[in-house]
Design a protein around this nucleic acid. Structure first.
Lengths: 129, 129
DNA sequence: GTGTTTGCAAACAATTTGCAGAATT
DNA sequence: AATTCTGCAAATTGTTTGCAAACAC
């Protein structure tokens, strides 16, 4: 499973690093295309898949049925706005792992945890009134 | 938004109650069809959507890109096996909410939380060696 | 009778795949 | 030279939708 360099893959990775809003494959495609017009959507999909397989990026399941991607692979939590659909990173300085609690009554092995929070983002909270 | 009785809807709900493994729309379709052969897949999708809109069932996002459904609408946590893909309910008697922690550094309003755990289920843990 | 729900098929949207040529090693 | 990667288009998969007939109230 050797891997060769590819400019396309590099650009996809670079682009993803500039974004904090967890874009979809299509958004990645639209943007990388601005500087590399000949790239194809299939290549974007293939590379996003590959990068997430080797752990260089993360898949984020926002719940809209579309896969989102995140270049930040550190453990962190996501917030999804019920009104505008925005996906925000949450500061987790004080966040505890639930794995010990979850493991207590479970006979398998729990290795990871993904937590999503739902509600209203600061902007939508303000607009609601 | 009045709602009329439908035998199909009733059967879908009934079937879902018999299952603890969070089936997909297609699995619901295949099974309800055994006792009601004329039901269509579209009807299954429409009713699962409707039932989840009115809160009688729950959507579960397992991460395989397919929507799963759960007749158990109590708050509980799900475990997804990395090896076999099984989706299991976790006993949450002692599980704490992370919402207070998450809210501390966040200026929006957090109302809900969904946590998924990943790892190896009891069966796969045993088979691994 | 009025309004909702159904079955069917076609439409849709997101993603994957087969293949011949281009790029990397 | 060998192998991986790409662009393209077609195929696949999961889900939604338009419509006329069937059903519930």
């Amino acid at each position: 499973m050797t891997m060769k360099y590819s400019r396309q893959r590099e650009m996809i990775k670079e682009f993803l690093k500039t974004r904090k809003d967890h874009p979809t494959a299509d958004t990645v495609y639209m943007n990388v295309r601005k500087t590399y017009p000949s790239i194809s959507l299939g290549t974007v999909y293939r590379n996003l898949q590959l990068l997430s397989d080797i752990g260089e990026i993360q898949k984020v399941n926002v719940g809209d049925g579309i896969e989102h991607f995140d270049a930040d692979i550190r453990e962190h939590y996501h917030f999804i706005c019920r009104r505008c659909g925005a996906v925000l990173d949450l500061d987790v300085r004080k966040m505890r792992s639930l794995i010990p609690d979850a493991s207590e009554f479970f006979r398998g092995k729990i290795e990871g945890q993904a937590t999503y929070f739902y509600g209203y983002c600061p902007d939508c909270l303000f607009d609601e009134e």
